[in-house]
Design a protein around this nucleic acid. Structure first.
Lengths: 219, 219
DNA sequence: CAGGTAAATTAGGCTGGACTACAATTCCCA
DNA sequence: TGGGAATTGTAGTCCAGCCTAATTTACCTG
């Protein structure tokens, strides 16, 4: 049985690998986990001995098949927990991450499967993050960032990368919850802004914010 | 912030104290927690230094005010979690204890308060165990064991002490879920059995089983 | 009231997971 | 292409929790 610490390392390696070149560097893990680089190095050896990762000193770490499977289980627990809290208790998308961060290590896979069934086998969590399935399969739907859209593009807001409570609350307050349909009315690279129109209402976002929002082509 | 281990020690001390003379012995804690006696002794010193317990070597341990408050918070989290799982996912009373055992350390008090509200501030969990309130108050309703009832007594099944899945399933299968109303038709101390009638159906229990079932006077 | 037994404590040791300080490596640029 | 900066790795230390074995205490009974 993987310890809470091991699960967190594996999950973090998974996320860093996904958002980069498929490898995770010691320093990235150290800052993501809030521990010192030396601690990460020694843990990577441990994980390597457990055959959860392949580790090449001074180069990086990547998940083995077993490591990937564990990461997907942890991510699945996290995301289904988030959605469960939203659906049952009417919690908001900015509240659930913190709770799920702890609960993901405490709920059994059996319980998670029941939650999955109760929720009707959802594909995504409240932030639009795809949910790994119980058979270990995992697909990331195609999408692009709002910053990549051209003027006139119609879109549907499908996923939010920056999940800080502040950003999520900003989106809610701006009438931009998940699933929102809209159209890009301006995208000025020089000025670093993107303006969208949603139900007649225009909102302007900085480029950094627009890059944290994923969209699919709108209707 | 109390560690998972500390929370488990405090909760166990609480339970042992309640079911006995208000003190917990080292050996009782060791077997309840599944650790060696020596381990308990050293942990009791730690807890004592944190002012969660008062510890007298060779005599026993009892909770301080702070220790009692912590125990009630853990018990509250456990019991509300159990009821939440039963209400939302239709889990059965023999399934939820194990899950709650882990989740009680992972859910925040804020989340628990929302669950409490969602459930309508219930008084008892699926086994009839009373739920400590958020203000720290805690009352144990008066009751007696089925073994203490006399022939002819009408009762309502209010709480089950033995919460092993096997026993709970036995009760369910015997038509004796929580809340069942019935009447004692025999109580033979020499034979060590108690026979009850529920909706015309008679069931005979051993004395040990009858002592694990609490009842309130029926209508 | 002496001695045996059961329970509790002490002593010493181990492992997981963290730290700091220092050494090695890699990278990048002049 | 050499050298400094940034990144990694190594070594040694610490603490929480656990163990076993040896010792001490408390209690009970003859």
């Amino acid at each position: 049985m993987a310890s809470l610490t091991v699960e967190n390392y594996i999950k973090t390696i998974f996320q860093v690998c996904l958002s980069g070149d498929g490898q995770a560097a010691t320093g990235q893990l150290a800052s993501a986990l809030g521990v010192s680089p030396g601690t990460v190095t020694s843990m990577l050896k441990t994980l390597s001995e457990s055959n959860l990762v392949t580790y090449t000193p001074y180069e990086g770490v990547r998940l083995t098949h077993a490591g990937n499977a564990l990461a997907l289980r942890v991510v699945r627990r996290h995301r289904l927990t988030e959605l469960f809290l939203v659906k049952t208790l009417n919690m908001t998308w900015d509240e659930v991450h913190e709770e799920a961060e702890h609960m993901e290590h405490a709920v059994s896979d059996r319980l998670i499967d029941r939650i999955d069934e109760f929720l009707g086998r959802p594909e995504a969590d409240p932030h639009g993050d795809p949910i790994p399935r119980s058979d270990g399969s995992f697909e990331i739907p195609a999408s692009r960032t709002l910053a990549e859209c051209g003027v006139g593009d119609k879109f549907r807001l499908s996923r939010v990368i920056d999940q800080s409570p502040e950003f999520l609350r900003f989106l809610s307050n701006s009438g931009l919850p998940l699933g929102t349909a809209g159209q890009v009315v301006a995208n000025r690279i020089e000025a670093g802004i993107v303006t969208v129109s949603v139900e007649g209402q225009e909102t302007t976002l900085g480029r950094a914010a627009a890059e944290k929002i994923l969209v699919t082509p709108g209707r």
